[in-house]
């Protein structure tokens, strides 16, 4: 089935513990892999201060999941996040119409190696200036 490149981010309140957070993340990842989709990256953010109060929460945990899957998976994930009372906010974006796992991973790798030497150069320059 045709796969698309999606990104989903959701926000949990600060009272949700580690175990529950990873359980929810695993549940969503399972939805993707069950439909022959593939996970590109799961990025749980540390506890963050919110810009405004959401259901009396001033802090929360964001999680970003990037994946490639058919559109039906997106509907399932949206349903799951809507039903879960602990999820304060969520957003899903389509990053690209086509998803090719190898190509995506390759470009990510290339970006990493591209930015890494640049950072090294900067530190070298800083040292030279000292």
């Amino acid at each position: 089935m045709k796969q698309q490149h999606y990104e989903t981010m959701y926000l949990l309140g600060s009272d949700v513990n580690d175990v529950d957070r990873s359980a929810l993340s695993a549940k969503l990842q399972k939805l993707v892999t069950d439909a022959n989709g593939s996970i590109v990256e799961v990025n749980p953010w540390p506890l963050q201060r919110l810009a405004y109060k959401v259901k009396k929460n001033t802090q929360g945990y964001y999680t970003v999941i990037e994946y490639g899957a058919p559109g039906s998976v997106l509907a399932e994930i949206t349903r799951e996040l809507r039903l879960d009372d602990r999820v304060l906010k969520f957003i899903s974006l389509k990053k690209a119409d086509k998803f090719d796992y190898e190509a995506v991973m390759k470009s990510r790798q290339a970006k990493k190696t591209e930015t890494a030497p640049a950072a090294e150069d900067e530190t070298k320059e800083a040292e030279a200036n000292e």
Binding site: M9, L11, R49, L50, A51, Y52, K53, V54, T58, G60, Y62, L88, K89, I91
Partner: peptide
């Protein structure tokens, strides 16, 4: 997503 404030009045 509550990453940015909508108005300064509600901002923490």
């Amino acid at each position: 997503m509550a990453l940015l404030p909508v108005t300064a009045g509600h901002a923490l």
